[in-house]
């Protein structure tokens, strides 16, 4: 089981009599880019929030980075990185203070933070900008910085929640190249997106409909299975069959 960094079994979340996530079972392999797709309201945000420890499941089992999500949530939080929709940086403080802040949050020591800050600034070509407010950085740089900070503590898994919404097409593609680099270094990437072309960049994808996983495989295998030209067609086919419309 060592090569599986996320394992869920009948994972379920209910809000009152509404079942947001309805017994999902899947796994994510170490080092893969896993795309987690679904229409608005299909349950993907709820599922992701259980995996990163924001919400406790109603029932079912799950392990993230080898830890049980009921008993070992604190260890899970240390083993994962998270980048929310758009950026999780603080716009009104300088680049260097963002690095120190996130380094501290993710439990790095002062010495580690000092060492990592210098290396990170160098890697991102931001050495001359360390005292610049994040709000003054171009969009592409902000995004690189946000992603680098989400993996500053070398997590086993990084969760990316719609990281590319509203971003220009060139920056969006450069961001995916960062994702590839991280995956090549062994970080597992769990990513949600509404861009169907980005689904093709993933090693495997799942598509959620009405709280369940309606499809899960590599993009190529899914296209074969559904006899479709692209993921958009599969998504449309599955999501049009959805019964519920609530978010």
């Amino acid at each position: 089981m060592a090569d599986k960094v996320i394992i869920t079994e009948n994972l379920t979340k209910k809000f009152g009599d509404f079942t947001a996530v309805d017994g999902i079972s899947f796994h994510v392999n170490k080092g893969e880019i896993f795309g987690f797709l679904g229409a608005n309201g299909a349950g993907k945000t709820t599922a992701m929030k259980m995996l990163i420890g924001i919400w406790e499941p109603t029932s079912g089992k799950a392990e993230v980075a080898g830890y049980d999500i009921y008993r070992d949530m604190e260890n899970i939080k240390k083993s994962i990185g998270y980048m929310s929709q758009r950026f999780s940086l603080y716009e009104d403080i300088p680049v260097i203070e963002n690095i120190r802040f996130f380094g501290g949050i993710y439990g790095l020591s002062r010495a580690e933070i000092k060492e990592k800050s210098a290396a990170l600034l160098h890697k991102l070509n931001l050495t001359g900008e360390s005292k610049t407010l994040v709000s003054a950085l171009p969009l592409g740089w902000k995004q690189k910085l946000a992603f680098s900070l989400a993996i500053i503590h070398q997590p086993k898994i990084v969760f990316l929640d719609e990281p590319t919404g509203g971003v220009d097409p060139i920056t969006r593609r450069k961001f995916w190249e960062l994702i590839y680099d991280a995956a090549n270094e062994g970080v597992t990437v769990f990513v949600t997106t509404h861009y169907m072309d980005e689904a093709e960049y993933c090693d495997r994808i799942s598509i959620m409909v009405d709280g369940r996983i309606a499809a899960l495989d590599s993009p190529a295998a899914l296209k074969k299975q559904f006899n479709a030209e692209n993921i958009d067609q599969i998504f449309t086919h599955l999501a049009r069959g959805a019964k519920r419309t609530a978010d």
Binding site: N40, M196, D232, T236, A239
Partner: peptide
Amino acid sequence: TTGVDPVSRK
């Protein structure tokens, strides 16, 4: 349509 899934966008 920002942040809206592909089917609702259509």
